[in-house]
Design a protein around this nucleic acid. Structure first.
Length: 281
DNA sequence: CAGTACGCCTGGTAGC
DNA sequence: TGCTACCAGGCGTACT
């Protein structure tokens, strides 16, 4: 699922290809996408692309921003002179525009940014840049790894949590950016049972988990994210982290940590959860 | 308040 | 181009 590493990979791509380019026109094909916001960035130039947790913010030079959350199946696909020779993974990206294309950003110089979304869970907003941080999604989001998620805060949050530690890791109000894949893998790397509560963890376990979260996210970034369903980068290419999963999606396979246990799949709070019954205590 | 269940969506797949 | 039921899940909302 698109989580911090996947969204960051998209952010880098958008930054590389959009910054300095003028948006000539925006074609909104799915009225649900912008949730009623009127869209008038005509003539605005992209000044920067930011990420908050799993959210993206494309800043424009006219005081407005395009905010986007790609949820499960959103895809930003850029096509321009400089990317013409690159071929997207056709299994994941239908020729754009396709029936899944929800918006088309026509850029100066004949370049185009397509936004596809199969399940239509994704949303975008077109609001003043100064209002971005007032959106509930950003306002209520907790600190995120590599930015402001400090160990002391992490420890305090866990010591107050009575629910499954895996759900705590995925709670965006507590920690920003971690989703199902990386929560599963971090717990496997730290050898902690996902069903345990945060407050049941001792100091050493909390430390190991804190480090494991950063390690799996870093590995995800290194491989350009994980393509589990429809995630692709802005050139339409799949990520590679799915070939390096520790626990996620590996039910029935041998645990990479202990080499003994067989990864088992259960459900925690309605989400598929993968862990090693032998070494994750 | 904290934790949990459900709805939003639709392509893919297992089973008949 | 068989048809149906179910699964995947980030996050907002409602509920306990």
């Amino acid at each position: 699922m698109p989580e911090l590493p996947e969204v960051e990979t998209i952010r880098k791509g958008l930054e590389k290809y959009l910054v300095g380019k003028k948006i000539k026109e925006v074609e909104v094909r799915d009225s649900k996408l912008f949730q009623g916001d009127k869209f008038h960035p005509t003539g605005a130039i992209v000044s920067g692309v930011r990420r908050f947790g799993k959210g993206l913010v494309i800043d424009l030079d006219n005081g407005y921003s395009i905010v986007a959350h790609i949820k499960l199946t959103g895809q930003f696909i850029y096509e321009g002179k400089e990317t013409k020779e690159l071929v997207p993974d056709m299994k994941l990206v239908a020729p754009v525009p396709s029936k899944f294309t929800r918006a088309i950003f026509h850029l100066e110089g004949g370049a185009t940014l397509f936004f596809n979304d199969i399940r239509r869970f994704a949303w975008m907003r077109f609001i003043k840049t100064t209002e971005v941080k007032t959106l509930p999604f950003f306002k209520e989001m907790g600190p995120e790894p590599f930015k402001d998620l400090k160990f002391e805060y992490f420890k305090t949050v866990l010591q107050k949590s009575t629910g499954a530690i895996k759900s705590t890791l995925m709670d965006q109000k507590k920690i920003g950016g971690v989703g199902n894949i990386y929560a599963n893998d971090a717990l496997n790397l730290a050898k902690i049972d996902p069903k345990r509560s945060g407050k049941s963890l001792n100091d050493l376990e909390i430390k190991k988990l804190y480090e494991a979260v950063e390690t799996v996210l870093k590995t995800g970034l290194k491989y350009g994210g994980a393509t589990e369903i429809n995630y692709v980068n802005v050139l339409g290419q799949a990520g590679k982290y799915q070939n390096h999963f520790l626990a996620y999606g590996r039910a029935g396979e041998k645990c990479k940590q202990c080499g003994k246990g067989i990864i088992k799949k259960i459900r925690i709070a309605g989400r598929g959860t993968y862990f090693c019954p032998v070494c994750q205590k």
